[in-house]
Amino acid sequence: MEKVSIVGLGWVGLPLAEKLQKDGYDVQGSKASTEGVEEVKALGLNCQLLNTTLDLSLRNPNIKALFSCDTLVITLPPNGHHGLKKYASIVAALAKTAEYCGAKRIVFTSSISVYGKQANIVTEQSYCEPINDSGDAVLAAEEALLAAVKIPVAIVRLGGLFGDDRLPQNWLQKKTHFDYPNHSINMVHRVDAVNAIAAIIAGDWTEKQIYNVVVAMHPTRYEYYNKVAVDHRLPLPIFDEAELARPTRASYVDGSKITRDFPFQYQGSIYEV
Rank of each mutant, 00 (worst) to 15 (best):
Y180A: 15
R233F: 13
R157E: 10
Q265P: 00
I63Q: 09
W171Y: 14
Q21C: 08
E39W: 06
V4D: 07
L172P: 05
D23I: 00
V156D: 07
L84S: 10
N62Y: 14
E272R: 10
S113F: 07
E143L: 12
P237M: 02
E243K: 11
D204A: 15
R221E: 00
D70Y: 13
L158C: 04
F264A: 02
A88R: 11
S111A: 13
Y224H: 01
Y222C: 03
Q209C: 10
Y211A: 00
N60E: 14
H177R: 10
A196H: 09
E2A: 13
G159C: 06
A199S: 15
Y252R: 00
N212S: 05
V188Q: 06
H189Y: 12
A42I: 01
E223M: 04
D164N: 14
N195F: 09
G116Y: 06
V213M: 04
A250C: 08
A148E: 11
L94W: 09
K41Y: 01
F262Y: 15
V73H: 08
K19H: 10
P168V: 03
K19L: 15
A92D: 05
S89I: 00
L234G: 03
V40Y: 07
R260I: 01
I63A: 10
I238C: 06
E18A: 13
I210A: 10
H232M: 02
R221V: 03
G102I: 09
A196W: 03
K19N: 11
S134F: 08
I112Y: 05
L45F: 13
Y225E: 02
A92N: 02
I151P: 01
P168Y: 11
I185P: 01
